[in-house]
């Protein structure tokens, strides 16, 4: 097999492989780890990060990234909490709408106004944080008067799958389908691979990039809704480290920072890997600080993964003249 094919496959095997390894090792060392209950717990906790990582994957596919996802999720959860009393469960839709708006802001700034992704998403991150503080009495968690319709959602399962995880799974199925089978999905790959070439063949690169950021915003908003369902409160200041973790999950899941390469399910496995690792360390009584250090080291390694794989599996570049 040619080097590039191996490279192509290998980057997407890291996440599932790592997850398997973690579960096996943890299952052996930590009692009760591989129980259904524990796995469901991991799945439920992964619900939020999965949505954020999915959105992150899409924008990384078009050569960008989004550090505002955490703040947007927090802001959306606050919006949901505030409107719960008046609107009931439609407040969740409002949360998604909030995400859509921020996603649109990012998309317009980056795709149409040619602002660098780091600056644009930094801008919307600060704006989301500010907005969340504004509507929530300066950052206090917002508790709706009547959250009974949400009670127990965090603990329910459908066919063994945690209910909270279902939105993420549905979104992943949709995104996977679009990427493989829909023209829009192929356009996303084309724009990520070579934006100029994409324009030359008639792809509206700006529109495609905008759609990627809109989707990322929607998923962040949805994550906020899930957060609200999970905790029953709106948390305006939550989510600072989620943006980092979503990037980590996406990269571990084989998404290339330079764009043009991405696959949905490995990203999900990346999320599960992070959660599984955290849970394992938690159960073992390892200090959360050490867990954080481990997570940081994993990100460092994930950065070198690309080059490591290339080194391991080939001695020359595909052209022969390296």
């Amino acid at each position: 097999m040619k080097a590039s094919t191996i490279n192509r496959q290998a980057r997407f095997l890291v996440a599932p492989g790592g997850l398997l390894l973690t579960v096996c090792v943890a299952g052996a060392l930590v009692g009760d780890y591989a129980s259904l209950g524990n796995l469901q717990n991991i799945g439920s906790q992964a619900a939020i990060l999965a949505l954020l990582a999915l959105g992150q994957m899409l924008v990384m596919l078009v050569r960008g990234f989004d550090i505002s996802v955490g703040a947007v999720a927090a802001c959306s959860s606050t919006v949901a909490a505030l409107t719960m009393d008046s609107l009931g469960t439609s407040s969740l839709a409002l949360a998604v709408l909030a995400g859509l708006l921020f996603g649109g802001l990012n998309g317009v700034l980056i795709a149409y106004l040619r602002v660098q992704p780091i600056v644009a998403t930094l801008c919307s991150m600060i704006a989301a944080q500010g907005l969340a503080r504004l509507i929530s009495d300066d950052g206090q968690p917002v508790v709706p008067v009547d959250a009974s319709s949400l009670a127990d959602l965090a603990f329910q399962n459908i066919a063994g799958i945690p209910l909270l995880l279902v939105p993420a799974l549905i979104c992943m199925l949709l995104v996977g389908l679009v990427l493989k089978k829909f023209t829009l999905g192929r356009h996303l790959f084309m724009v990520g691979c070579d934006p100029q070439a994409a324009s030359l063949v008639g792809v509206d690169s700006r529109r495609v990039t905008l759609i990627a950021y809109l989707a990322c915003g929607v998923f962040a908003g949805l994550a906020g809704a899930v957060l609200f369902c999970k905790t029953g409160t709106g948390l305006p200041t939550e989510g600072v480290s989620w943006a980092l973790q979503s990037v980590a999950a996406a990269v571990i899941g084989g998404t290339a920072l330079q764009g043009g390469t991405a696959s949905v399910w490995p990203v999900f496995f990346g999320v599960l890997l992070i959660q599984a690792l955290e849970t394992a360390l938690n159960i073992q009584g390892v200090s959360p600080f050490i867990a954080e250090i481990v997570m940081g080291l994993i990100i460092l390694v994930a950065g070198g993964l690309d080059r490591l794989i290339l080194r391991l599996f080939s001695s020359t570049t595909p052209y022969g003249e390296s």
Binding site: P288, F289, G296, I299, G303
Partner: peptide, 17 residues
């Protein structure tokens, strides 16, 4: 991008520890 993000977590973990 990834190196400094990773260092952010590592250093924060160290400081917390």
């Amino acid at each position: 991008f990834l190196v400094t993000l990773g260092m952010l977590m590592v250093l924060h973990g160290l400081a917390s520890l």
